[in-house]
């Protein structure tokens, strides 16, 4: 694997965080792995030309997720999933509730929320990431949050209080 040393170093360090982002996007562990793999493999293809791998990976992952959803590859909803390596019972409830709630959103809205609130990207950065204008991102953010409030309902208070 000559010539992949830098990439492997980046990937090894970045996979845990990318995997968490991917899980929030897909709501499924296996799909999250596939998304991480696709994203990083495409980065390796053009590794020499990537200036900021961290930012590139976030953008590429969000775009790959939306593109794959459009292609209908992942149209299925995740089924029951056993919790893994969970420290607290509250985490399981939170994870399941958040997965269900995010699953109610359109892929683009989901990507917007993950980039805005998990990756801590600005509206302008998310707009650039997803190829939209800033006002569209603002609108989608508000709409997605409204939807989350409805879906989470009373559970939200309990989840936050945990």
């Amino acid at each position: 694997m000559a010539g992949t040393g830098d990439f492997e170093e980046f990937a090894r360090a970045g996979i845990p965080r990318l995997y968490r982002t991917a899980w929030l996007l897909t709501g499924d562990r296996h799909h999250a792995e596939d998304l991480v793999q696709d994203t990083l493999a495409n980065m390796l293809k053009t590794w020499a030309r990537i200036d900021n791998p961290g930012a590139y990976a976030r953008t590429a992952m969000a775009r790959t997720f939306i593109s794959q959803r459009r292609r209908r590859s992942w149209s299925e909803r995740p089924t029951a999933e056993l919790p893994e390596q969970v420290a607290r019972v509250g985490d399981v409830e939170l994870r399941m509730a958040l997965r269900e709630a995010l699953g109610e959103l359109a892929p683009l809205d989901r990507a917007v929320l993950v980039l805005r609130y998990f990756e801590d990207r600005s509206v302008e950065q998310v707009a650039l990431d997803l190829g939209k204008n800033a006002s569209a991102i603002t609108t989608r953010t508000a709409r997605a949050l409204d939807r989350l409030r409805v879906v989470l309902g009373d559970n939200a208070v309990q989840l936050i209080a945990h």
Partner: peptide, 25 residues
Amino acid sequence: LMDRATENLEPVSTDLLDRTVQQGL
């Protein structure tokens, strides 16, 4: 919420990096 929901999540596959490199190559 997002942070807490994912803080203990780790890839299931131990060979994810290897598979990624192979696919990328």
